[in-house]
Design a protein around this nucleic acid. Sequence first.
DNA 1: CGAGAACGCGCG
DNA 2: AAAGCGCGCGTTCTCG
Length: 600
Amino acid sequence: MTYDLILDKAALRRALALCTKPTALDFETTSLRPIDGRVRLAQLRNDELRCVVDFDQIPGGFAACAGLFLGLGPWVVFNSGFEMRWFLAAGAAPDIIDVGHLRRARMGGGRFSLADMVLWDLEKVLEKTEQVSNWAAPELTDAQLEYAIKDADVTFELYQHWTGKTTAAHDRAAQLLDDMTLGVIEMEEAGMLLDRRAHRDLVRRWEEIRDELATQVRSLIPEEDVANLNSNPQFSDFFSRIFPDRVLSVWPKTEKTNQLEISGEALSKMAGLFPGTPIETALDALSRYRKIQKYLSSFGQTVIDTAARSADGRVRARFNVGAARTCRFSSSGPNLQQVPRDKKLFASDDDQTRVRKSFIAPPGSLLVSYDYSAIEMRVLALLSGDDQLLHDVVFGDVHSEVAAVIAGHKIDKKTPEGKAARSAAKGVSFGIIYGSAAGGLSITMRTTLEKAQSYIDFWAARYPRAFAYRFLMQEEAQSTGFLTMNDGGTIYLGKKNADLPKCANYPVQRAALSVMARAITRHKATLDRLRGSGELDRDRTMLLATIHDALIDEALEDQAEIVKQAMAEDMTQAYLDFFPGAPTDNLIEGGVGPNWADLG
DNA sequence: CGAGAACGCGCG
DNA sequence: AAAGCGCGCGTTCTCG
């Protein structure tokens, strides 16, 4: 099968005249980002068109032609963020459908390449060796052109494959993801500013603490016994040698290799068996050493280096749309969704982690952030139609309510007993959302099987519809292999894998994501409108991040209130998009401040 | 020497 | 029958 090589604008217009229907589109570019490269080729493919456009042969290149793609298509692509970036750089934002989103709408989310989809869905091997070839060469080889058109071919095949397997409901779910493209690009391009001096000071303090703890551990466990303080196998071997069987038998073991678990939790637990002894001191010191070492390796110098590599001192992460099974986002390179909350490093002293304090707004600007309160509990109540749960989560404090009934009387959140009771109740409710049974719950709550079961029984009696909803979802998955989501999408589980934890949690996690997806889409549109009208500064107002149930913006100091109001409105309306008429009382919580930690 | 498994842990 | 959900990343260690 042959393809047309398009080398002038008139021929491009003729080809585009055939693109008033879904048409696969793929670019080959001279770099990964518009800032330092250009679109060399565009490949177009539908049932009556198969062509490669060489923009180096057209005066003005792609930038002079991008507008011609508007009002056509929709353009079917793999990874909408990539193609959209090049369109945006050329001042156009055409209608785009991501075939990956179609797959996610039907099967559930995940991170995968075009080659993965071709293998899984078309059962073919996609050759990728030409992908990194020189797309700036004056004369492209036949192999390059053949490779280029092949990507458009498979993209079109994948589109046909998935439209044959999806319904209008799936299309809505895919659209929900497609619609976030512009907002996500804004977040990824903005990045978060790091206060490198403050963070460097923090890292130095961490290093002091780590060195002190290492000395403590070393005074009791010399190098001859354990050469590397970061090595779990070495500690497992050493402890296996020195401790008697009665100790080893209660030491938690690792899953795959059945070694001694060298986790903070296991170390603290085992330390508790030797009160007032040097063993307790050593195990506690090791537990602390591990914690601080984690902070240093994950959130220390590497974060400073990442910021220092960018021209403006910002940390730019990726926000991967639909990356989780439930289509939740993931973040990577670095993962901004796992930056530690600012809190005490160790319960017994005053050192703070303060990592979020290092992420700042530039001079003259502020950060603005809102998050949804207890969104998963809310959506479980709404999905299941459980009025009691909805009432408790909206107008009260579910955890305190549950704690009160378990205790048989009102609890006081200020007393240690009250705190413990509430914390236990929290464990029960999370257990319900995670679909846990008495066995799992008794382990995480560190209680007996009987007590765990009684908590579950209580929860089931107070919130019968929410409790039963999870089993209804499981029944669906066991009979069809699929779970149906609130946004019209489905997640493939397979009848055999329809266990309660997944069937209980996926619909809830997905519903929360669907609300956030609408929030991002609405908020991006709102910011664009206010920037367009001049009410907000065009260059210094931006969407920075989504942390699952939260949004973060940056805005000029005297415009932060406007942005805050807009964010609150957008997030509230987004929730109503999926749950019209639902109560919005205490739905969101937010603030404005100079850094990520201090958002009053 | 590089890839990948295993572990542990940060976040929601 | 058995079952707490979802991620990404740094480190160590094994394997080929």
